[in-house]
Amino acid sequence: MNLLDILSTGELYRIAGYSKKTNKENIHIPYFNLEVENFEKQTHTGYQGVFNWSNMQYISMSTSIKKILGYDKDVFLLRGINFALSIVHPTDLLLLRNIHIEIFNYYYNTPNEQRGKLRFSYNLRIRAADNSYVTILRQSNFLSFTDDGKPALEYINCTDITQYRFTSSINLAIHKLSPSGIYVLCHETEFSDSHHTLSKREMEVLELARKGYTSKEIAEKLYLCIETVKSHRKHIIAKTGSGNMTAAINKIDKL
């Protein structure tokens, strides 16, 4: 099983409030004028992008991303969100689903007219082209919205903070633009990576168990013998300090 199954494009689309039945071509997005000449400005410490949530595609990416991650911007424009997720650190990817759930819970609990004033920030480890990991501070805000209040265009600014990171937990901060023009912190959560000792196979077993598969079914899907799956389940329970698999799943889902 691929770790991307934990946070697929469809899952992100659903978390953002879009129905799988939505006809993306019929979604009206208010016009927003992107100043490409400013957006493409070179920087040695970060890169910028614009993401369209209605069709899950990047519509712009600064060329400075190559200085930070080593990838050409066209890789993101052509391969999209699936490629972006594929280079997220496996441990961070496991936490990313709950981070987005919290972001959009806050977003949808904010009045429509205030949503454009929100800024979302969190740190994330990204695998660079040379296979090293770069820690970025990802800050974003929504530029435009669909007629019924769903997020449309998101402006993303990423800064390389690798040299400043001392822990591997993910900190989500949500700020709101005040009438005086200052962003004020209004929500903060730390997402612990206490389960980072789980192996890749254990994380695969855990995710399938979370979806309701039995040990026998997991063994078939992962081409393992059932005793190996049972052993992985025992290790997951022990490493998370839980009494059973359900408790282990609930504990990780709350991170």
Rank of each mutant, 00 (worst) to 15 (best):
L7K: 01
L7N: 00
S8Q: 03
A16Y: 08
N26K: 12
N33P: 06
E37Y: 13
Y47V: 06
Q48R: 13
Q48I: 12
S54I: 11
K67C: 03
I68E: 03
D72L: 08
D72V: 10
D74N: 13
V75A: 09
L77T: 15
G80F: 03
I81D: 11
N82T: 13
L85H: 10
S86A: 05
I87R: 01
V88F: 01
V88H: 02
D92Q: 02
L94I: 06
L118Y: 04
R119G: 10
F120S: 04
S121H: 01
Y133L: 02
I156R: 00
C158S: 06
Y164A: 09
S168D: 07
S169C: 06
L172Y: 02
A173R: 05
A173G: 00
K176L: 08
P179K: 12
C186S: 11
E188Y: 13
F191R: 02
D193Q: 11
D193H: 10
E202V: 09
V205E: 06
L208P: 01
A209E: 00
G212F: 14
A219Q: 02
L222W: 09
L224C: 08
C225A: 05
E227G: 06
S231K: 10
H232F: 14
H232R: 10
R233W: 02
T240M: 05
N250P: 07
N250I: 14
